[in-house]
């Protein structure tokens, strides 16, 4: 293969399978039409603002706070999901207990349940008079209409990501590896903490990044529970909507551009984790 590529540059390797042109054509046109033109429109509009206007809008105090809240709560929620996601995946892969199949299916509920429904349901639960909120109010803990509420909503939304990236890797753990650790004298805790979990690191990182990215952009499930106080519990996507409703398109564009750049950076990081993991350990996620 290297010999032929050295001879002349080839866009694709020859194949007897037909339909490459048609399939790639459909794919590219659809991709350009639906995704690339609209997204580049956003970048073009934000560059049209000029650097100074853009910088002023992106570093506006309310914008900065909104970005900080979005990224901060998404980070916290992703951390919670890493801890419980790994436990949940472990329990689902390793143990048998009544109702396991239902729990396994329910892990995907946040994927399937519309975010607005999740939003109003969580708000009802955690509001001061809700099922859970009413238990916490006497203790002085307030969840709904605070940043903690945002974290709760983002934990819900990001729950499947860690579980579903870690679970298949856990299923593939060779039982011999655990036995090997035991024969070398490792107790169960050492086996888990030094052999099994480090082997899962790439998957856990990927799951974390996916949950984090999803949390940063999340809108529907958050706006009901957040209370949306400017500077305190107002997330960046909501601020975009508010600016749009004020017909302040440049500000909305600027915030969106900042978020988009950070999201792309994260996408890059996820791809790099996977490539690194494949190169080094011979398995990806």
């Amino acid at each position: 293969m290297t010999a032929s590529t050295r001879k002349r540059w080839q866009f694709r390797q020859p194949s007897v399978i037909p339909g490459f042109g048609l399939a790639l054509g459909v794919t590219l046109s659809w991709l350009i039409l639906i995704i690339l033109i609209p997204l580049s429109g956003l970048l073009w509009r934000s560059s049209a603002l000029g650097w100074e206007t853009f910088w002023a809008m992106a570093t506006d105090q309310r914008t900065l706070n909104a970005l900080r809240i979005s990224f901060g709560t998404a980070f916290a929620a992703a951390l919670v999901n890493v801890v419980f996601g790994v436990i949940l995946a472990w329990v689902l892969v390793r143990y048998r207990f009544p109702g396991k199949r239902i729990i396994d299916a329910m892990v995907d509920l946040p994927f399937a349940l519309p975010t607005a429904v999740a939003g109003i349901a969580l708000t009802t639960l955690y509001a001061p008079n809700g099922w859970i909120g009413s238990l916490l109010t006497p203790l002085g803990i307030k969840i709904a209409f605070t940043p903690i509420g945002i974290v709760i909503a983002l934990v819900f939304v990001g729950l499947p990501f860690v579980v579903r990236t870690v679970q298949p890797i856990m299923e593939e753990i060779d039982k011999e590896v655990e036995e090997a650790a035991a024969t070398l004298g490792a107790n169960r805790f050492q086996t888990i903490s030094r052999v099994l979990l480090p082997g899962l690191t790439p998957a856990v990182l990927t799951g974390f990044a996916l949950a984090f990215a999803r949390g940063v952009g999340e809108y529907g499930s958050v706006i009901f529970i957040a209370g949306n106080l400017p500077y305190v519990s107002e997330i960046a996507p909501l601020l975009i909507v508010i600016r749009l409703e004020e017909f302040n398109y440049p500000a909305a564009t600027a915030i969106a551009a900042v978020m988009l750049v950070i999201s792309f950076a994260m996408l890059l990081v996820i791809n790099m984790i996977q490539a690194w993991s494949r190169r080094r350990y011979g398995y990806g996620t």
């Binding site: 011999e176 590896v177 090997a180 004298g185 690191t201 398995y283």
Partner: peptide, 18 residues
Amino acid sequence: VQQRNIGFVFQHYALFRH
């Protein structure tokens, strides 16, 4: 197994891949 201090070589080696 931990207390027995044995060395075991597994059929598929079971090396720690990380």
